[in-house]
């Protein structure tokens, strides 16, 4: 993405801490910054507990953030916000959840689920207009109009996820946060949903924050990627930069662990191991260094220098 474009969402030094007890605080997200530009897909990857879902939820203001600054559509959305900003945020930013069953109200018809956003913001218009809008969006996501009066339990997982997407789309959003939106689906259905998301992006120029742990899917759908570990953004850059030239040992271990559907090779592959405790790295001491272009890595000056010298890579990662 070019630098001239203005980011639609810009997150600076986001911190989200959860106080568990008087003595113990979980630093789920600890100083993360990234930008998302209109019409692009930003992938967030990391293991469970790395804070990727928390970031998604903080951005859409499901949590009160501990520290940091977020701007969306040129308006500050951190801290207290005016009613207008809040309304803009609630319509222009939407979310798709992981479990399509748990995120749809079982006692409402598909029509009411999808139209709920319109109802709340008073955009539905007459009953007929409301119906037309819902049917149009249903057909857009590949469901037929007869489905409008059914209940969520009458649908399969893939269809439910389509309903979830329809609910997000009807508000005509600028940014959709997809939190593990395809992980609960079967492989063949995953491909359908990913294709649908890409088509919609082409048509409406919506941006996605795509949160997932399946790296091969993230690589396929994302324009840029951020790698998270223990609440820190370790490495970010375009998909090519991250996959062709991973610098941080954690990124390397992640990429080396992706299984390939190729039996002969797969039986020869060894994955790298990475353990924060023994790696000798301290995330809070590091700074984001720009390697080239948009490719940035977190680390101290010394670390970065070491990682840039290819010969030393094996030693740094701790594998022989």
């Amino acid at each position: 993405m070019s630098d001239l474009k203005k980011p639609i969402l810009s997150v600076k030094n986001l911190k989200q801490h959860f106080k568990v007890s008087r003595k113990f605080t979980v630093k789920a997200v600890d100083g993360v910054s990234f930008d998302i530009f209109p019409g692009e897909t930003y992938g967030l990857v990391g293991e469970s507990g790395s804070g990727k879902s928390t970031i998604g939820r903080s951005v859409i203001r499901l949590y009160d953030i501990t520290d940091g600054e977020m701007t969306f559509n040129d308006q500050n959305i951190s801290g207290k916000v005016s009613k207008e900003t809040n309304d803009m945020l609630r319509t222009k930013m939407q979310m798709i959840f992981q479990d399509p069953m748990a995120s749809l109200n079982p006692r409402k018809t598909v029509m009411d689920i999808i139209a709920q956003g319109l109802d709340i913001h008073g955009k539905a218009g007459s009953k007929k207009e409301r119906e037309e809008q819902v049917i149009e969006i249903l057909e857009r996501v590949g469901l037929s109009r007869e489905f409008a009066n059914r209940y969520p339990n009458q649908f399969s997982g893939g269809q439910r996820q389509r309903i979830g997407i329809a609910r997000a789309l009807i508000m005509n959003p600028d940014l959709i946060i997809a939190d593990e939106a395809i992980s609960a689906l079967d492989v063949s259905i995953q491909a359908q949903i990913v294709n649908l998301m890409k088509d919609i992006q082409k048509e409406t120029n919506v941006a996605y924050l795509f949160i997932a742990h399946d790296l091969s899917m993230v690589r396929y759908i994302s324009d840029r990627i951020g790698v998270l570990h223990l609440g820190h953004l370790l490495e970010t850059g375009t998909t090519e930069e991250i996959f062709n030239n991973p610098l941080h040992p954690y990124t390397k271990s992640l990429i080396s662990a992706i299984p390939h559907p190729n039996p002969v090779l797969e039986k020869k592959r060894t994955s790298l191991s990475y353990d924060y405790a023994t790696s000798g790295l301290n995330y809070s001491e590091g700074k984001l260094h720009t390697v080239e272009g948009t490719h940035k890595v977190l680390g101290t000056d010394l670390d970065i220098e070491k990682w840039l010298q290819k010969d030393n890579q094996k030693e740094v990662i701790g594998v022989s």
Binding site: S156, G158, Q159, D186, V187, S188, I189, Q190, A191, Q192, V194, N195, K198, S216, M217, R219, Y220, F243, I258, H260, P261
Partner: peptide, 24 residues
């Protein structure tokens, strides 16, 4: 065939993933 194609290979750059249409 459908299963193998539905998994993005690390080389897949195609615009669309080949997906199996419909539901089980």
């Amino acid at each position: 065939w459908g299963l193998l194609l539905a998994m993005p290979d690390l080389e897949t750059k195609a615009d669309k993933l080949e997906s199996i249409p419909g539901n089980p």
